[in-house]
């Protein structure tokens, strides 16, 4: 078993780890780096519980080899909040009761973040299709979709108030 030394950035921090080529990024995160917030649900890319953002794109970490991420930047659920300050998405998931057992929640938060990063004002249909790779068996998706749309609204509000504040300063 030859292990390779891989350098990458995880949640903004430079990280080095040793891994065998056959270890997936998911395995590296959970078993090597002890970042167990990213979940294993199927190992075939069908449930989305292991979703992470790799170089700006949401992917299933079960279908990425650890050795493939050399030099890459990875964002996981552990990196969403700044200290104890939750993001709008995390907050609306709590307020809208968008989680029950919670095993799919990290994947949904990551997939939803990826969506809102590129589309700040998605329609319900857009939200549903963007989350199609994430299975939830507890909620029937209703409250999840509402939470994502509510978070989007909050984020737009924050952006417009910060840009109008900026404009105010400039004026």
């Amino acid at each position: 078993m030859t292990k390779e030394l891989i350098e990458a950035t995880i949640n903004g921090e430079p990280v080095e780890f040793l891994c065998e080529p056959r270890q997936s990024l998911l395995e590296v995160l959970r078993d090597v780096l002890n970042l167990t917030g990213t979940k294993e649900g199927c190992l075939t890319g069908d449930c989305g519980a292991c979703s992470v953002i790799l170089d700006g794109r949401v992917v299933c970490s079960c279908l990425v080899l650890g050795v493939e991420v050399a030099g890459g930047a990875i964002e996981t659920v552990e990196g969403l909040a700044e200290g104890t300050h939750l993001t709008e998405l995390q907050q609306t998931f709590l307020e809208d009761a968008a989680l029950q057992c919670g095993i799919c929640t990290p994947g949904f938060l990551i997939a939803a973040k990826a969506l809102l990063d590129s589309n700040p004002d998605p329609s319900e249909t857009e939200v549903r299709y963007a989350l199609a790779g994430n299975l939830c068996r507890c909620t029937g998706y209703d409250k999840i979709v509402r939470a994502v749309m509510d978070a989007a609204a909050l984020m737009r509000q924050r952006q417009s108030s910060s840009s109008s504040a900026k404009q105010g300063r400039e004026a």
Binding site: G37, A81, Q90, L94, E95, A97, G102
Partner: peptide
Amino acid sequence: IRPDGVDKVTG
């Protein structure tokens, strides 16, 4: 807000 909520949205 559910008592286990924060732990579940932060991993």
